[in-house]
Amino acid sequence: MFRQLSAMLIGVLLATPVFAQDTIRIATEGAYPPFNFIDASGEVKGFDVEIANALCEEMDANCELVTQNWDGIIPGLIAGRYDAIIASMSITPERQEAVSFSEPYYSNKLQFIAPGDSDFGPGDAAGSAIGAQRATIAAQWLEENVPDADIRLYDTQENAYLDLESGRLDAVLADVYVSYEWLDSDEGAAYEFKGDPVYNDDKIAVAVRKDDQVLAERFSEAIEAIRADGTYQAINGNYFPFDIY
């Protein structure tokens, strides 16, 4: 009996990997609309999620999506909790020391937003209370370029907007497309972009562990493929009336 059972168990263990597609666990944040957010039914949605699914289909991989707090998302990748991050992550030299990136899947800019009736401009940042999300390039840009500003760091982008509404902040520095979505909402109606983008060269890519070059390559090829066959453009059209690639 025991022998039969163990033989069966061994059989199962041996058989499983042969039939399984390779599984890639992908982390996203879930608090960064319209790129990744959790809807009323608890499902993760957004541009990043649709891109992740399209890439997985292209790579013929079986993907599991998990959500993870933003400021723990790189440590979680390094610790092996998941294999890739598709969460609107910008390529920065600091991050490149910790992780590897695929080719970019969209480009971004940083721009200030403030109440429509305020005369705030990027030049006024130094003496003002400016909000940004912790561990983002917006936070880093503020720390490097206007260290004299009263920089407040939030766990999520949504909390930074909340504090702009309450009047605790004079302005928020964030990704233009994220702000675009919020300015379009009821809460954001009284706010607007101020001045030109302060940073233009922001490339967003899939992050993988540093020694996982092969996976980064696969993502890069898949990005190229969904650009070529129009899948990307269809997803883009669901969110923005202009190409963000």
Binding site: G72, I74, P75, I78, E94, R95, R134, A135, Y154, D155
Partner: peptide, 21 residues
Amino acid sequence: TITLMDLTGVARTIIARTYTP
């Protein structure tokens, strides 16, 4: 969590730059 730079807040902000949690 509400932007205060207490001991945990400082640690998390530095981790955001160095990735050494």
